[in-house]
Amino acid sequence: MSGRVSEQEGFAAMVLRLRGEGISNQSLLNAVEQTQRGHFTPPQFQADAYSQRTIPLDCGSFMEGYDFAVRLLHCLNLKSGQRILEVGTGSGFTAAVMGRIAERVLTIDRYQTLVATAQKNLEKSGVRNVIVRQADGSAGVPGEGTFDRILITAAFNSLPRMFSDHLVSGGTLVVPIMMSETHCRVVRVSRTGSRFDREDLFDAPYIPIVMQLASYL
């Protein structure tokens, strides 16, 4: 079986699984299909690129399973023309998918190793409107203004107000929250004027966010 056939089959299987959950956003699925996941998967895990398994990355990070990553992006309800912030770059896969829909994506990670690798992955994938930056994800993004959508992929103990303040009215924040020492759930926050509405969505495999930049990785 060629790599291309494997990619097509992996995508088709994921679409069938998520349709069973009511996820059928065509613009999102088109962007996912255009983004070769193999470009973002470490060489030793290529066989798992289109699986539901989490895939280890450098610096103790990981790549979400294929279904889970698309489910997260579905929760954002991405639209063309939006400005997106992602906290936790990882492999760069979710940033690449968002970049195919939105006007501009800023993605940050505390590890320079992941930032450099994600930049190379994005270049391989031909995505040019994603900015990758090393930054402390626990501190907000001072000076960057506001965003239409914010995706965070490291867990906070409570809703991070500094990121809520980066949302425009009508904006959406998706963030994992630690419900206990071992239980994490993805939460969606929608802003309307000065009001914030919260929805608890589903369990997630994330661990608590680590403050400050990594010095050596």
Rank of each mutant, 00 (worst) to 15 (best):
81 G>N: 15
83 R>H: 14
84 I>L: 13
85 L>V: 09
86 E>H: 14
86 E>W: 04
87 V>N: 08
88 G>T: 05
88 G>W: 01
88 G>R: 03
89 T>G: 10
90 G>W: 02
91 S>M: 13
91 S>V: 11
94 T>Q: 15
94 T>L: 05
95 A>H: 07
96 A>Y: 04
97 V>F: 04
98 M>D: 07
99 G>V: 05
100 R>H: 12
102 A>F: 07
102 A>E: 06
102 A>K: 07
103 E>I: 01
103 E>N: 13
105 V>A: 04
105 V>M: 04
106 L>E: 04
106 L>S: 07
107 T>Q: 09
107 T>V: 08
109 D>M: 06
110 R>E: 05
112 Q>H: 11
112 Q>I: 06
113 T>R: 14
114 L>Y: 03
114 L>D: 02
115 V>K: 11
116 A>C: 11
117 T>S: 10
117 T>G: 05
118 A>P: 09
119 Q>I: 01
120 K>A: 15
120 K>W: 00
120 K>L: 11
121 N>D: 04
125 S>Q: 11
126 G>R: 13
126 G>H: 13
127 V>L: 06
129 N>R: 10
129 N>Q: 12
130 V>F: 04
131 I>F: 09
134 Q>N: 12
134 Q>G: 12
136 D>L: 10
137 G>H: 04
138 S>M: 13
140 G>N: 09
141 V>G: 07
142 P>T: 05
143 G>I: 12
143 G>S: 13
143 G>E: 12
143 G>L: 13
144 E>D: 14
144 E>G: 09
145 G>S: 11
146 T>Q: 15
148 D>L: 04
148 D>G: 06
152 I>E: 01
153 T>A: 06
153 T>K: 01
157 N>M: 09
158 S>G: 08
159 L>A: 09
160 P>H: 03
160 P>S: 08
160 P>V: 04
161 R>E: 15
162 M>Y: 05
164 S>R: 13
166 H>P: 00
166 H>E: 09
167 L>Y: 07
170 G>T: 09
172 T>W: 03
173 L>T: 03
174 V>H: 04
174 V>K: 02
175 V>L: 08
175 V>R: 01
176 P>E: 02
176 P>N: 06
178 M>L: 15
178 M>Q: 11
179 M>Y: 06
180 S>F: 04
182 T>S: 15
183 H>P: 00
183 H>A: 11
